[in-house]
């Protein structure tokens, strides 16, 4: 199972991306996308933003489950109160683990926001944030 995770800001600009594979049942945490597939990942994720924007007005939850599909890949979404979108591209359905992963990333994002020098829509470059996301990925996915 391979995943491609991105945080998109309010102007559809990516703030953070992370590509990884599953660590469960013997996985080594390394993503295994086909080479041609990899270059399409970002494209697929960003095009699913349209779907997210449609769904976010009818669904009041933060976690939006699966918002889009492309061939055999699914995109799951999570929208925060400030309209920051967390998107995960994955090939197998796993609702609850993904929800837990998003919750942990949400906590890390809110902590990033608490930094007075960090403004909304800035790229997230903190090493500690990166560590948190990687740890959450290892734990849940």
């Amino acid at each position: 199972m391979s995943f491609y995770f991105a945080i998109i800001g309010t102007r559809d600009n990516p703030l953070y991306t992370y590509e990884f594979g599953t660590s469960k049942s013997g996985g080594d945490g390394v993503a295994r996308f086909r080479e041609d597939q990899r270059s399409m990942n970002q494209f697929i994720l960003h095009s699913s933003l349209d779907m997210v924007e449609e769904v976010q007005w009818t669904n009041r939850d933060l976690y939006l489950k699966t918002v889009d599909r492309f061939n055999n890949l699914m995109v799951s979404g999570f929208v925060t109160g400030g309209n920051i979108k967390f998107l995960l591209l994955h090939d197998q359905k796993a609702e609850d683990p993904i929800r837990q992963f998003f919750t942990e990333v949400h906590e890390a994002y809110v902590k990033t926001l608490m930094n007075p020098f960090y403004e909304v829509d800035m790229r997230i470059v903190s090493v500690v944030f990166d560590q948190r996301v990687r740890a959450a990925a290892r734990k849940y996915l």
Partner: peptide, 14 residues
Amino acid sequence: LELLLFREGRSAKR
């Protein structure tokens, strides 16, 4: 905004 919504936990609704 983000903090208050986060603190609502699982039942948070936008």
